[in-house]
């Protein structure tokens, strides 16, 4: 690996933790969330996975905001702003998702997604 690259990216044994680690953590979280989405039988389990993915995204934004600022761009609050909006939207989405889930529960008698397989040929 290119040491200048890593140095500029914030990797050093004496320096605090840099960008790449945060990105890696976000990537792992994202992978975990994706697994949950794909493999969970329960609809709420899928929603949990979805929350994990969203959180990984916020983390990504925050990491890039923190380590991507330039001197002149001091007061841009892009990171937190994105985070706020994502949280808001996550809330909306969770509400609607629960509404759909309840409908699913009333129609099929169970929350397992395998049961909702009528849309097939």
């Amino acid at each position: 690996m290119n040491t200048t690259l890593l140095t500029s990216a914030g990797f050093s044994s004496t320096q605090p933790v840099g960008l790449l680690w945060y990105l890696t953590a976000a990537a792992i979280l994202f992978a975990l969330g994706l697994t949950a989405c794909m493999a969970r039988r329960n609809a709420i389990g899928i929603l949990i996975g979805l929350e994990l993915i969203l959180n990984a995204a916020i983390l990504n934004f925050m990491a890039f905001w923190r380590f991507g600022q330039s001197a002149t761009n001091d007061t841009s609050m892009a990171g937190p702003m994105m985070g706020i909006f994502i949280i808001v939207l996550a809330a909306c989405e969770a509400a609607v998702a629960l509404a759909i889930l309840l409908n699913l529960y009333f129609n099929f008698g169970s929350v397992e997604v395998d049961k909702a397989n009528r849309m097939r040929l």
Binding site: L34, C37, M38, A39, R40, R41, I46, V113, D114, A116, N117, R118, M119, R120, L121
Partner: peptide
Amino acid sequence: VNQSQTGYVRQYLMLTV
């Protein structure tokens, strides 16, 4: 080809991924 239309959401998601 029809058999791919299983109705299983998880399967769809996996294919999407």
